[in-house]
Design a protein around this nucleic acid. Structure first.
Lengths: 220, 220
DNA sequence: GTCTATAGATGGATAGAC
DNA sequence: GTCTATCCATCTATAGAC
């Protein structure tokens, strides 16, 4: 019986994948510059020069992680904005959807996107993507303020609150009881929406309207 | 006329101070490991080896910054907990007070306390202080849940929300219109309290009760 | 207190065998 | 595809003059 499921690459793609997983974990805890290629290789279980068979440079590893994180995220949020729904439901779906994606990802993402990585001039390409994501977030917030669904708030401040919740999701995740894990996307979204809604009593209605949007968001 | 204001050290203490200021800014943007002693020295306007007249090691610089940030913060929050007031007012005062202190500080703090710095085994001393601050935050949240002022929420999740707002304060600050800067402590506190209060309509009362506590908090 | 020169250590990346 | 050996750049830190 011939194996048709796995392509010609053999175990090569697996090792490349394990490098991305372990590197993302180390970057998240120690930072990009605080992590050596020797540490990554040790976690993967290969020698340090073997890394360079799979990636041309150390920078290429973090660039690949940025790509895998930011390109789908920007496409998800811009797709959400293009569709229908109230601004409040869209923001709820975005937060719940992003947190769900972050927690489902094999990589320990988000943390390494902050600070040093996006500020590095060598990685400017991904800074543009991050700005597009932030801009889309501010658009939803602005729309909600215009319709009166949201309180009058500086979009930049509210957007920072959203980003803060997303960035802390993997950290929060580790501090929370396992039985609450499935609820974290909903709880994260509810926490932010409660603070932005003019009438917090509408939260359950917003969550209900957001449910199909969230499903579509995660599938996109 | 003899200068009595400045002590015997002459300009030595000034240079040491400028090193702390510039190092904190570079650490905040590039991370601790992403910043070299040459870059710090260049910002200060001295040669790289001259740093080592003022600090024995590079690590000593970041340790001093952690000390200057965490020791007063822990003392402030534990003093707040020991005093009177409702849990909601205490939490409001803590957030507004911390944001005010962060924005008033000559150092670009907080960012460098995250991730790589506190996770570094060499800096374990300050991890304990950070945990005391987090524990005190959870205590206030728990107290508010017990009295029914706050909604039923996992204290760990709500504490992460608070930490997230504090950590993003210097970042948010740079994105906000200058005329809103003075209001940022109040806005940050209000944003969090709105999401935690069982009755968000009480927000103005809570802010009023918190006002004297905030003043005492910043003075401590 | 600051400088130049440099030691000593570490980390990213290459060469070439298997 | 992974290994050992090693090069070379960079970085922290020291030595010693001024």
């Amino acid at each position: 019986m011939v194996s048709v499921g796995t392509p010609k690459e053999g175990s090569g793609a697996e090792t490349r994948e394990r490098i991305l997983v372990e590197a993302s974990r180390l970057f998240a805890v120690q930072g990009y510059h605080g992590t050596t290629t020797r540490e990554i290789a040790a976690e993967v279980g290969i020698s340090q020069p073997s890394l360079f068979f799979h990636f041309p440079t150390k920078k290429a590893i973090v660039e690949e992680l940025c790509r895998l994180d930011l390109i789908p995220a920007v496409s998800r949020i811009e797709g959400l904005l293009a569709g229908g729904g109230s601004p409040a439901a869209k923001l709820f779906a975005m937060i719940a959807g992003e947190v769900a994606c972050i927690l489902a990802s094999p990589y320990d993402l988000r943390a390494h996107l902050a600070y040093e990585v996006l500020n590095d001039p060598d990685l400017g390409t991904y800074r543009d993507l991050a700005h597009r994501f932030d801009e889309a977030t501010r658009d939803v917030i602005r729309a909600g303020c215009d319709t009166g669904e949201f309180i009058e708030v500086d979009p930049a401040i509210a957007q920072q609150l959203v980003i803060a919740v997303l960035l802390r999701a993997p950290v929060t995740d580790r501090h929370v009881q396992p039985n609450l894990k499935d609820l974290e996307p909903q709880m994260s979204a509810a926490l932010v929406l409660r603070s932005l809604l003019t009438d917090p009593g509408r939260l359950d209605d917003v969550a209900a309207e957001a449910a199909p949007l969230t499903r579509r968001y995660c599938a996109a």
